[in-house]
C-alpha cells in the first residue's frame, strides 16, 4: 500500500489514501485496518498516562452529567448559620460564606466547565475546520485575508479581550463561551489550513478534481476526513485550556453570574477566606487540577498513538 504522509504544523497529519489502492483487495484492506486498530488499542492500554487521563476525563463527564443526582444539597441553598463550617459527614467539602454545600457547588460547577468545554471546543473546531479548509483550498487572496483575521484574533490576549467584552456587555456564561470560541478558532483554522495546503496538490485530490468534482465535494469527502483527525487530538488538548480560561474568568468575576456555581467562583470565594476556611480553595482546586491533567494526559497519549513520530521525550 502506498503511503503519502505529510507533516502539518503540529506534525500529526495522517493521510487516507485507501481510495487509490486499486490492487489491494477489500479483505486485505479491512484486515490491515483491524490490525492497525488493535495495535493502537494495545498502545493505549499500555500507556499509563493515557489510562489515567481517560479515567479522570470519565469521572469529570460522569460527575458533571449526573450532578443533580450526586449532589447532596441544592448548590444554591443558603444556610448562613452553618457558614464556613469545616468538612463533616454532612458536608464532605465543608460550606462557603453563605452556608452552601461546597461539594454540591463543585459538582454543579463541573457542569459549567463541561458546557463551556463541549460547546466552546466543538464550535471552535467546526468553524476553524471550515475556515481553514477554505483558506487552504480557496484563492490566494482569500487565504491571505483569512490568515490576517486569524493572526489579528490571536494577537488579542484572552483576558484582555474578556475584560473589554465584559465592560461592554456585562459578565455572563454566554460571554465566556463567545470569548472561548473566538480565541480558539484561529488555532484550529491554522492547522486545518496547513493540512489542506499539503493535500491540495496530492494525486488523489488532483484526480478527483480532474474528474469534475466540485470544491465542496472535494473538501467534504476527501480533504476533511484527512484533516479532522489531528484537529480532534488538538481539541482534546484544548479542553483543559478552555476549562481553565472559564475558571480564570469566573475567578476574576468576568464569568458566570451569581448564584451559578463555577470552579472559578468557588476558588475566588475560597481565596478570600483561605485563612479561615482553606478547604474551599482545596476543594475547588482539586477538580480543576485533575480535569486539566486528565485531558492533557489523554491528549498526549492519543497524539503518541496516532503519530508515533511524536514520541516520548518531546
Amino acid at each position: 500500500m502506498s503511503e503519502n504522509r505529510s507533516e502539518s504544523e503540529t506534525g500529526i497529519l495522517a493521510v487516507d489514501v485507501s481510495g487509490l489502492s486499486d490492487h489491494v483487495t477489500d479483505a486485505e484492506t479491512r484486515e490491515s485496518a483491524a490490525r492497525e486498530r488493535r495495535e493502537k488499542l494495545r498502545m493505549f492500554l499500555t500507556n499509563w498516562q493515557g489510562l489515567t487521563g481517560l479515567i479522570l476525563v470519565a469521572v469529570f463527564f460522569a460527575s458533571a452529567i449526573f450532578a443533580p443526582w450526586l449532589a447532596p444539597y441544592d448548590p444554591n441553598a443558603l444556610d448562613v448559620p452553618a457558614r464556613l463550617s469545616g468538612p463533616t459527614l454532612d458536608h464532605l467539602a465543608g460550606t462557603d460564606q453563605l452556608g452552601r454545600d461546597t461539594l454540591s457547588r463543585i459538582l454543579f460547577g463541573g457542569r459549567v466547565a463541561l458546557k463551556i468545554a463541549a460547546i466552546g471546543v466543538s464550535v471552535a473546531l467546526t468553524v476553524g475546520l471550515i475556515l481553514g479548509m477554505i483558506a487552504g483550498f480557496g484563492p490566494r487572496w482569500l487565504d491571505s485575508l483569512l490568515l490576517l483575521v486569524f493572526d489579528t484574533v490571536r494577537s488579542f490576549p484572552t483576558i484582555v479581550l474578556a475584560l473589554a467584552t465584559v465592560a461592554l456587555t456585562g459578565p455572563s456564561l454566554a460571554v465566556v463561551l463567545a470569548i472561548v470560541i473566538i480565541t480558539s478558532i484561529p488555532q484550529y483554522a491554522r492547522v486545518a489550513r496547513t493540512a489542506t495546503l499539503t493535500l491540495r496538490n496530492t494525486d488523489f485530490i488532483l484526480a478527483e478534481r480532474s474528474l469534475g468534482a466540485s470544491m465542496t465535494r472535494t473538501l467534504l469527502h476527501h480533504v476533511m476526513p484527512n484533516v479532522v483527525g489531528p484537529l480532534l487530538i488538538l481539541a482534546a488538548m484544548d479542553v483543559p485550556v478552555v476549562v481553565t480560561v472559564e475558571a480564570g474568568l469566573s475567578f476574576l468575576g468576568l464569568g458566570v453570574t451569581p448564584p451559578t456555581a463555577s470552579w472559578g467562583t468557588i476558588l475566588n470565594e475560597g481565596y478570600l477566606v483561605i485563612r479561615d476556611a482553606p478547604w474551599m480553595v482545596i476543594a475547588g482546586g482539586i477538580p480543576l487540577i485533575l480535569t486539566t491533567l486528565g485531558f492533557t494526559f489523554l491528549g498526549e497519549a492519543l497524539r503518541d498513538i496516532f503519530d508515533p513520530r511524536m514520541g516520548k521525550g518531546r
Binding site: N76, L78, V80, Q97, L98, G253, P258, P259, E269, L272
Partner: peptide
C-alpha cells in the same frame, strides 16, 4: 460593585 461583601450581600438578596 464587584467585591466580596457586596457580592455576598447581592446573593442573599437574590435568595
Amino acid at each position: 460593585l464587584n467585591n466580596q461583601e457586596r457580592m455576598l450581600t447581592a446573593q442573599i438578596i437574590q435568595a
